[in-house]
């Protein structure tokens, strides 16, 4: 019986090794999971803990700088949805200094300290020219979009270098997203977001964006610049530059309309 048992055990061991080999081969042959690729790319863009950054938007039309806005963005992920909630303080230009915007999904508020008034905005209202309100806040795309792997491509990145990328097609899975669908190229080796194209529901290209100038910030290499090119007029270009990454405690009570009149950046 022990022999039989041994033989049976040996056979079972062979079967296990074989199964493991087959599984490994199948895993190697199977396409990578698109949602995981997207989530890994989110982790490159966003620290997964509360933080603040300074975002500077420089807008060009026909090669000339036409606008410049600086914002301090405080972001924290919601416990239930995992999506980021953001409080945005306008730093420049001087006329807008210390105005605030709060974005918590579709819950969007604007506060002007001069008039002391807190106004609820609809998602359609834009405050920042070419950049949609959803562009300046921190977004975990994997929470809001369903990703599908469309293939692998070599594309030119923001530094004009070729990168081997997964091309993902993202379809909106949440009702309050800024874009209906997105094409996104993510570096296969590093999970870095390289390039994205944003579309309206009707299929119109709204804008293209390049993520570039990756630098060490809050524990890993993150993009410090996004170059946005208008879908209709490619001579309309916005450079979004990220700096002053700081990990910080952001109480939940900050992220509501009633807190805006009390907000103090310190």
């Amino acid at each position: 019986m022990p022999y039989v048992t041994f033989e049976r055990g040996k056979a079972a061991g062979r079967a296990t090794v074989l199964a493991a080999l087959l599984f490994a081969l199948a895993a190697a042959a199977a396409p990578p999971d698109a949602q995981h690729i997207l989530a890994a790319s989110d982790d490159v863009r966003n620290p997964q803990y509360p933080f603040s950054i300074t975002t500077t938007l420089i807008e060009y039309r026909d090669g000339k700088q036409t606008d410049s806005t600086a914002l301090q963005v405080y972001s924290k992920a919601a416990e239930n949805s995992g999506q980021f909630r953001s409080l945005i303080r306008f730093v420049a230009p001087p006329r807008d200094a210390n105005k605030l915007m709060l974005k918590n999904g579709n819950d969007l508020w604007f506060y002007d300290p001069t008039g002391k008034s807190t106004i609820r905005l609809s998602p359609q209202q834009r405050l920042l020219g070419q950049a949609a309100n959803g562009d300046v806040v921190t977004v975990n795309l994997a929470k809001d979009y369903r990703a599908k792997l469309a293939g692998e491509e070599d594309v030119q990145d923001g530094e004009r270098q070729n990168q081997h990328c997964y091309k993902l097609e993202l379809a909106a899975a949440a009702p309050d997203v800024t874009y209906d669908h997105i094409e996104m190229w993510i570096a296969a080796a590093t999970s870095r977001p390289i390039k994205a194209r944003y579309f309206s529901e009707s299929g119109r290209l709204l804008k293209s964006a390049y993520f570039r100038h990756f630098q060490d910030n809050l524990g890993q290499q993150r993009p410090t610049e996004m170059v946005i090119i208008d879908g209709l007029n490619p001579n309309w270009v916005t450079v979004m530059r990220y700096s002053d990454f700081v990990k910080r405690d952001i109480p939940d009570t900050w992220l509501q309309a009633d807190y805006l009149p009390r907000f103090s950046p310190e």
Binding site: T56, S68, R160, Y210, E225, V227, V239, R241
Partner: peptide
């Protein structure tokens, strides 16, 4: 557009 972005000065208000 990327070449234009390269010319953006490094300034933070």
């Amino acid at each position: 557009a990327l070449k234009l972005a390269d010319t953006t000065p490094e300034e933070t208000a």
